[in-house]
């Protein structure tokens, strides 16, 4: 690209346009980010008093059974999300993309609607849906299969309840991305494959899947990043607690407990950094990979 020798605009103009963003990002991102490093080497008692402990926070984390429990729970949820949510979302998008489907726009709206309801409100709804006796789930199961109407899901199957609530909330959300990608698949290529005698599943494997691969990667990483930051859903579902035997304790909930119930912002920051290190590779891959795609 040829560079202009002189500028038509005032050289200060771009800085003026950027000034609100730069001011806020400096005060409320760059500074807290640096301070989080500093805090991770301190123990604090509330926001006002801190005491240098060097690496103790990280060493304590290594031997903290609750932290490992939180990590294990979060991982379980993330894996379930990946292997249940993504195939269901893709399947739903494939179904909805069939040419004979009527009311596609309307159905898309229905499937997407739970994603608009924030995790807090879904958590709140879930306390009602999973409740014994009056809850929707037990009522329906009892009506269909004579299932025990008093069964206490939130005592025995916290993770199951979380995964079901997560499915309800995010399958339609992920479907939107797959549907948009499917509508960009080259129709001529599909027709050519059909004429060459490729069966439906062969067309799916050899034509559809390769052309939606970037979106597939995007959705997988987005779900992974989101799953690792799970907090509101279990927190509200379990009445602001990690649930019986800490079955619903997640990494971010443990961060919250330490920082804002116990008051140790240092330990909370150390947990935050472990989370950041776990997520930095998938996030960087997602941003970098798709950032590069868009430049073309």
């Amino acid at each position: 690209m040829a560079q202009a020798k002189y500028r038509l605009h005032n050289p200060l103009a771009p800085y003026l346009f950027l000034s609100p963003f730069l001011f806020i990002i400096g005060v409320f991102f760059v500074y807290p980010l640096l301070q989080s490093i500093n805090l991770a080497f301190h123990q604090t008692f509330g926001p006002g008093f801190q005491h240098f402990v060097f690496l103790d926070n990280f060493l304590n984390l290594l031997h903290d059974p609750l932290f490992w429990k939180a990590l294990r729970n979060t991982l379980t949820y993330a894996v379930a999300t990946l292997f249940l949510q993504i195939p269901m979302a893709l399947g739903l998008a494939l179904l909805l993309n069939q040419p004979w489907v009527r009311g596609r726009v309307f159905l898309r709206l229905i499937f997407f609607s739970p994603a608009l309801v924030g995790p807090v409100f879904v958590g709140f709804m879930s306390t009602l849906v999973f409740a014994g006796r009056v809850g929707l789930l037990n009522r329906v199961l009892n009506w269909l299969f004579g299932f025990n109407p008093d069964y206490a899901w939130l005592q025995n199957h916290v993770m199951g309840a979380l995964i079901i609530a997560g499915l309800w909330m995010y399958v339609g959300f992920n479907m939107i991305f797959f549907l948009a990608a499917l509508q960009n698949v080259d129709g001529d290529l599909l027709d050519a494959a059909r004429i060459d005698g490729a069966k439906a599943w062969q067309r799916f494997i050899h034509v559809v899947l390769p052309s939606i691969r970037p979106v597939f990667g995007f959705v997988v990483l987005l779900s992974l990043i989101g799953s690792f930051q799970l907090f509101e859903l279990p927190f509200v579902l379990l009445n602001q607690s990690p649930g019986p035997d800490n079955q619903g304790l997640t990494i971010v909930m443990y961060l919250y407990q330490n920082g804002f119930e116990i008051g140790d912002l240092g330990y909370a920051s150390a947990i935050g950094w472990v989370l950041a290190v776990i997520l930095i590779v998938p996030t960087a891959f997602q941003r970098f990979y798709f950032g590069r795609k868009e430049e073309n």
């Binding site: 005060v27 991102f29 807290p32 240092g266 989370l275």
Partner: peptide, 16 residues
């Protein structure tokens, strides 16, 4: 900025 998970900034932002 896009690489940093928001929960990391919770504690330092509270202090700020």
């Amino acid at each position: 900025t896009l690489l940093i998970p928001p929960p990391l900034l919770l504690a330092p932002t509270y202090q700020l």
